[in-house]
Amino acid sequence: MTQMTESNERLNAIQKQIAKAAKQAQRKAEDARLIAISKTRSADEIRPLLDTGHRLFGENRVQEAAAKWPALRDEYDDVELHLVGQLQSNKAEDAVALFDAVHSLDRPSLIKALAKAMDKLDRHIPCYVQVNIGEESQKGGCAIADVPSLIASARSAGLEVAGLMCVPPSAVNPAPYFALLAKLAKDSDLPGLSMGMSGDFESAIKLGATYIRVGTALFGERA
């Protein structure tokens, strides 16, 4: 019960922050959906948040998600699971079978693999193009200049491109990067913006985020 109380308190605190940021931006709080990032968290750590009624979760790795989420989904109805980490092309079929959205579409080979997997499984899930918004060599995502052509390729392959995703550089003001992603999305007539994490989601909401990805602030510091 204590774990559920802590989860409730953390969730309520974040929901209040979401509502405040949305109000300041003259947006509805429900237009910025909260993805609880449960990577590296055990099923026992995840259950208290599920018990609060939260149903939207994100994972970074296909293999890790496959080890815990099928059983959790048997216990809890209506769970929505998003892949927010890098996806290897050879894991595309597993990802399509397990996840309800992919936030890390970043290259032509992955477009091909996902399209093939979706056709094979007859399961078509929305994808977000991940943009290397800070042009950092160590991060995934397509180059800013390649965004239009990658979107066009994905659409031609029959994928549903729902929006763009980014992870701004750390230790700098993220707002200009969120604003740039919003402009790129608008230029391509994309409604979805997956941006903002535990430390900067309020800024992301003010700049149009439709999905924010929060882990530590919901689950606490990792052991």
Rank of each mutant, 00 (worst) to 15 (best):
V131H: 01
A13I: 12
K23L: 07
A152G: 03
D119M: 13
A145S: 09
V214R: 00
D200M: 05
E160Q: 15
A66G: 13
Q88G: 15
V172M: 03
A157E: 02
L81Y: 08
A204T: 12
E80A: 05
T216C: 01
I205K: 01
A145C: 02
L72R: 09
E59S: 07
S203K: 13
L121Y: 06
H82V: 08
K28A: 15
E45R: 12
L121V: 09
Q17I: 03
K28N: 12
R222Q: 09
H82W: 11
V79R: 10
F201R: 02
V84L: 15
P191V: 07
K186I: 03
L11Q: 04
K186Y: 02
E59L: 07
A152E: 10
A179G: 04
T40Y: 00
R55F: 11
M195E: 12
M118R: 01
A19F: 02
D187L: 12
L98G: 02
S149F: 04
R55S: 14
T210R: 05
K68F: 14
F201C: 08
A113D: 07
I46C: 04
T52A: 11
A97M: 10
M118W: 01
C166P: 00
S104W: 04
E93W: 08
A157Q: 06
D189T: 14
A92H: 10
K112C: 04
D200Q: 06
A179P: 03
P70N: 15
S38Q: 01
L49Y: 02
D122Y: 13
I125C: 11
H54D: 09
F178M: 02
I111V: 13
A66R: 10
F57S: 09
G196E: 05
R27D: 03
V167H: 02
P70L: 12
P169L: 09
D200R: 07
I125V: 12
E59C: 11
A117G: 05
I18W: 00
A67H: 09
